[in-house]
Design a protein around this nucleic acid. Sequence first.
DNA 1: ATGGTTGTCATACAA
Length: 270
Amino acid sequence: MGLTVATWNINSVRLRTGLVQRFLEETRPDVLCLQETNCPDDQFPSGDFRKLGYGHIAMNGQKGYHGVAILSRLPFVSQDTRIFADKNDCRHISVSFGAEARAANGVTIHNFYVPAGGDVPNTDVNEKFAHKLTFLDEMRDWGASAKPASGKAILVGDLNVAPLENDVWSHKQMLDVVSHTPIECEKLTSAIDSAEWVDAIRTLKPEPERVYTWWSYRAADWEASNRGRRLDHIWVSKELAPELKAIDIHRQARSWERPSDHVPVTVTLG
DNA sequence: ATGGTTGTCATACAA
């Protein structure tokens, strides 16, 4: 079938338009899903991506923060956005492909940006953590309806949870840190299981291999300390799981000039 | 135990 889909939290698409262009030119994925575009739709730098062959663009952005977008070389026949946890802060967009998209025919791609959840993992004192947990519960309840008639669905994005022990640099030291608390890990796992998603990254890079997609800006030397987390995910429906061929974590992008704190991840199907 | 960085927007808030 031959389909490549990438996901990348870009942390401002306007500030890092050049980095997105570099990634598109070097990797040429069929589809790139962006999160944290931090950009209203009418200011999205569409032209810079169109001229590289990504002429099909769906976006759901807002002023200042959050926001998601999908850049595609293949035409899609429909697009949609959905509100989770009663807050319309631009955290989801999806596109569906038809016969004209050939390899992607019948595929629906969902692009998510799950709330980070604030600093304190306690719903009594931190409304953002409560919001994150509600968001994850709603993802779980919605998941079964995410697939088109073909059964071919892909869910990607910055899910802001590193659910497995080897998704973080120190499981023990991270148990009380938002993104790796037991309740978040359970809720993410439950969202996977309830809709029978397949965790594509861990299918091809099983534990105990350590896999990270994010490194904090706060480290003096992110590469030397290597205190990363696997916050970005690619899930595929069980109908697509037999097509899984490769996962690429584009770790080198963390060393590019003025980088995002997340790196792109690409899945190859077919 | 603490503070460490970045982006947006306007000097605080989200990550």
